[in-house]
Simulated assay, not measured.
Amino acid sequence: MSLPVITEARRIDSGRLETRVLSHGPEDGVPVVFVHGNLSAATWFEETMMRLPDGFRAIAPDLRAYGEADPEAKVDATRGLKDLSDDLAALLAALDIEAAHFVGHSLGGAVLWQLLADHSGRVLSLTQVCPGSPFGFGGCLPDGGAAYPDGAGTGASAVNPEFAKMLASGDRGGETPFHTRNILNAFVWKPPFVPERMEDILDAALAQHTDEQDYPGDVKPSDNWPTVAAGDWGPINGMAPHRIDDPLGFTKGPTPPICWIRGSDDAIVADNSGFDLGALGAAGAVPGWPGAEVFPPQPMIAQTERALSAYEAAGGTVQRHVIEDCGHSPYLEKPGAFDTAFHAFLTNI
């Protein structure tokens, strides 16, 4: 499937990954790289890219395992999200860009924690939009450790199989709660909002790679609740807490400025996320939950705040913005409020 484009699109081979890269703005502009989240692709950022202030050049790749990236390139989840952060560094090298400002949404924000830890010289600033916790997603204790050492109840083992089936089918309908269209409208932005380019955004979501090693990824049997654990392949397995070897690694080197923007009513990255088996178990939605002492709801926002406080203690500066009446996608839902915070940050560094 060829995804719709309202910016400039070209294919770039960085030596690590051949993928579609969107761009907008003057060739000699200061580079701003947009990193999309799960169930997404570079398409989601196009209007935001086109609204950048004068003098900036927007660049947005389809990540490995998403959109029009090479379908043979898989994410080795045993490395956490390092495949994706290494891809971004390689893309900059291929474009002859020494360093750039980065914007990450959701999973893309989690990738940027890793990028800053491993490739800090490439980073001028980070704008983190509803980013995943630096400690991983789901099955994570308040102090940041994994609830189970094998990643049970995280990664692909926490993905609803009916939703995964619907996504892989490419069905654009909305007959069941598990249709991709309904998941987007119920969780990825706050109802009753629907993006003007809904069909293009749905195209980009349905372009997510759904090979066995992509989404949701493989699973392993486990003696721990819920009897399956995150496997070794795919970006969702790469977010499992036991795969994140140094969650605070980004606080231990150079400290470019960070801007954290989130929606007040985010249902995905939250202290009681509807996609965390700990929260679902506590609500009685998943049987056999072993209790809060073993598998608590992950305090995602509190963990990110703690990590950013450590970043400030190391000498970094952090801006925090909460956009009211807004869900998981502020740049789509509340573009005016988002741009006010983002542009002021970007132009005053």
Rank of each mutant, 00 (worst) to 15 (best):
residue 282 A to I: 05
residue 323 I to R: 00
residue 288 G to V: 00
residue 280 L to F: 09
residue 291 G to D: 03
residue 280 L to N: 09
residue 320 R to N: 12
residue 284 G to S: 01
residue 329 S to R: 09
residue 286 V to R: 12
residue 305 E to Y: 11
residue 295 F to S: 02
residue 282 A to C: 02
residue 284 G to C: 09
residue 316 G to F: 07
residue 291 G to M: 03
residue 297 P to T: 04
residue 323 I to P: 15
residue 319 Q to M: 07
residue 314 A to M: 11
residue 314 A to G: 05
residue 289 W to P: 01
residue 328 H to C: 02
residue 285 A to K: 15
residue 301 I to G: 00
residue 287 P to M: 04
residue 298 Q to H: 14
residue 310 A to N: 13
residue 274 G to S: 08
residue 304 T to M: 13
residue 312 E to M: 15
residue 303 Q to Y: 09
residue 314 A to V: 09
residue 309 S to F: 05
residue 281 G to L: 05
residue 316 G to C: 01
residue 276 D to N: 13
residue 290 P to Q: 13
residue 286 V to Q: 08
residue 320 R to D: 12
residue 315 G to D: 07
residue 326 C to S: 10
residue 308 L to M: 11
residue 303 Q to E: 04
residue 323 I to E: 04
residue 277 L to D: 13
residue 301 I to M: 05
residue 296 P to W: 11
residue 328 H to E: 05
residue 288 G to F: 02
residue 298 Q to P: 00
residue 309 S to Y: 05
residue 291 G to V: 03
residue 279 A to D: 03
residue 290 P to I: 04
residue 277 L to G: 03
residue 331 Y to F: 15
residue 286 V to H: 10
residue 321 H to R: 15
residue 301 I to T: 11
residue 313 A to V: 12
residue 329 S to I: 13
residue 285 A to V: 05
residue 306 R to I: 12
residue 316 G to Q: 06
residue 322 V to I: 15
residue 273 S to F: 03
residue 319 Q to N: 09
residue 291 G to L: 09
residue 330 P to K: 15
residue 308 L to F: 12
residue 292 A to L: 00
residue 317 T to I: 03
residue 320 R to E: 05
residue 284 G to R: 05
residue 312 E to Y: 14
residue 284 G to E: 07
residue 294 V to H: 06
residue 287 P to D: 05
residue 318 V to G: 11
residue 311 Y to L: 02
residue 273 S to I: 02
residue 308 L to P: 10
residue 275 F to K: 07
residue 331 Y to Q: 14
residue 316 G to T: 03
residue 277 L to N: 13
residue 292 A to Q: 06
residue 330 P to G: 11
residue 306 R to E: 15
residue 305 E to W: 14
residue 323 I to V: 06
residue 288 G to C: 04
residue 278 G to P: 08
residue 300 M to E: 15
residue 280 L to R: 03
residue 275 F to M: 09
residue 307 A to C: 06
residue 281 G to W: 07
residue 326 C to L: 02
residue 300 M to I: 06
residue 310 A to H: 02
residue 279 A to R: 02
residue 272 N to S: 14
residue 284 G to D: 02
residue 319 Q to H: 07
residue 319 Q to G: 14
residue 296 P to K: 00
residue 329 S to A: 15
residue 331 Y to N: 10
residue 286 V to L: 12
residue 281 G to Q: 13
residue 328 H to M: 09
residue 304 T to C: 11
residue 312 E to R: 08
residue 315 G to P: 00
residue 307 A to K: 08
residue 309 S to K: 06
residue 295 F to P: 01
residue 290 P to R: 06
residue 306 R to N: 14
residue 283 A to I: 11
residue 329 S to P: 00
residue 314 A to I: 09
residue 324 E to Q: 01
residue 319 Q to R: 14
residue 279 A to T: 07
residue 304 T to H: 01
residue 322 V to Y: 04
residue 331 Y to C: 11
residue 277 L to P: 01
residue 307 A to V: 10
residue 308 L to A: 01
residue 315 G to S: 09
residue 282 A to T: 01
residue 303 Q to H: 08
residue 313 A to W: 02
residue 290 P to W: 12
residue 298 Q to Y: 10
residue 272 N to R: 14
residue 299 P to H: 04
residue 319 Q to A: 08
